[in-house]
């Protein structure tokens, strides 16, 4: 199977120019658009969309870089740092409390804090991929997933508050 980088014809690296990537995606989309070409090319269009989704997303792109370098992703790094898990647990509890209390300011403060930490992890991921430190890269990817889950939960709460 072709890697998402191959499909979009870009270098297999984490720090992709997202503006250039989007332009490339649009150009290629026009070429394989199922309306304009043979039915058989519907598959190519689906692959292209999936590849672009992967490369737009930090977590998925980080994994794709590791895959492209032949680093196995199964048996992912287990998070063994109790202090990290404790911090995540406390953040999730604080978010749960803020949700129950309908404390929008608290929810947003927690969200901003976690978003900052996520961004810092993402920079650390970029640096470790650059340095070919794959163990560290996998650890950062693992941690980013915990932050992402937290931010997903924030989105759910925001929707709730909008509906209320």
């Amino acid at each position: 199977m072709r890697s998402p980088f191959d499909i979009l014809g870009v270098e297999a690296r984490f720090d992709l120019d997202q503006v250039a990537l989007e332009k490339r995606f649009r150009d290629l989309s026009r070429e394989v658009h199922p309306d304009r070409s043979r039915r058989a090319e519907l598959g190519a269009s689906i692959d292209l969309n999936a590849a672009y989704r992967t490369l737009k997303d930090d977590l998925a792109r980080g994994r794709a870089v590791l895959e492209a370098r032949g680093v196995p992703m199964q048996g992912e790094e287990r998070e063994n740092d109790p202090a990290f898990l404790m911090a995540i647990m406390e953040l999730r509890e604080a978010l749960g409390d803020a949700r129950a209390a309908r404390d929008v300011a608290k929810v947003e403060a927690l969200a901003a804090q976690v978003a900052d930490t996520y961004a810092a992890s993402c920079r650390a991921l970029a640096a470790s991929l650059e340095a070919h430190d794959h163990g560290a890269a996998r650890r950062h990817l693992g941690r980013m997933r915990y932050y992402r889950r937290f931010l997903d939960e924030v989105d759910v709460i925001r929707e709730e508050n909008e509906l209320a």
């Binding site: 790094e77 287990r78 998070e79 898990l85 915990y146 932050y147 992402r148």
Partner: peptide, 13 residues
């Protein structure tokens, strides 16, 4: 016991 699932970011105590 405090454990986390790296595949999905879940935490369990």
């Amino acid at each position: 016991g405090l454990v986390g699932a790296p595949a999905c970011g879940d935490v369990m105590r």
